[in-house]
Amino acid sequence: MQLVEGTDSSIRRFLKQLPGVDQVGAESRAAMLGTRSIKTASKKWAIDCAISMIDLTTLEGSDTDGKVKALCTKAVHPDPTDPTVPSVGAICVYNDKVATARKHLDAIGGQSIPVAAVSTAFPSGRASLEVKKQDTLDALNSGATEIDMVIDRGAFLSGDLVKVFTEIVYIKELCGDRAHLKVILETGELVTLDNVRKASHLAMAAGADFIKTSTGKISPAATAPVVLVMLEAVRDWYEMTGIRIGVKPAGGIRTTKDAIKQLVLVRETAGEEWLTPKLFRIGASALLNDLLMQRMKLRNGNYAGPNYVTLD
């Protein structure tokens, strides 16, 4: 469904009819949902659900093949002592580590785990369109089936919405049927919730399969009000088009409590239909071990130390 043509006036008209976001109200709604108390059976369900939604991520200058392989091993069997722990949602790396990740996952029984590559001059997005396209092509040709691109925040803030829109359209074209496109808004640089709502709709109109909060390199990242507004955006988009777009908060989600709060936000904003790795992912690295420790606690009744979960 073509809601927006790529012209400046069309994009502006489309974004202008969106309702505003009252920041105080959105913050208080997010805070209220943060008080939900998730216990016993629902906690157990939520922990496994969260594990299966993790995009297990390493995005460091110091990443090596060894580091990436270790992460892949963990992705397939997060807890080697307990085969009932689900695999994570995906592995997320820079494009030059995609081949390593894919090969290793395939070799250890992780064929079903997709490899996501950050792309388009991640994290800043400050490069020419040609470079961004090549960046994406490299990742696709190495076997990435998910592309996490960044939008041009400078263009968005200066009002060059056509540039933001067409870049997404181009990258989406490259992805074609080969890969899912996640569009990173970097909400910490967009700052206002009105901008978050506008950028969410802009990305969806340009062809995003997922909208993602942050690169993880900028703080604040996936705050509850930001995720709330993005969930409202995908809910409204579904009502307009009948198409469900995914949401991926990334950055700053470190504890089981944080993750469960995210799931509560999903349940009470977009709805239960979004509680699947197909429509909700959590970009994280340290989170997985905390989820595993909480899972052990539910199973054994006591907290194990950090040496009872693996460090990768």
């Binding site: 309702p19 009252d22 959105a26 208080s28 709604r29």
Partner: peptide, 11 residues
């Protein structure tokens, strides 16, 4: 008609 609709619903 120009209210911030999601927060209005909450209110």
């Amino acid at each position: 008609d120009d209210s911030p609709i999601d927060q209005t619903v909450e209110g």
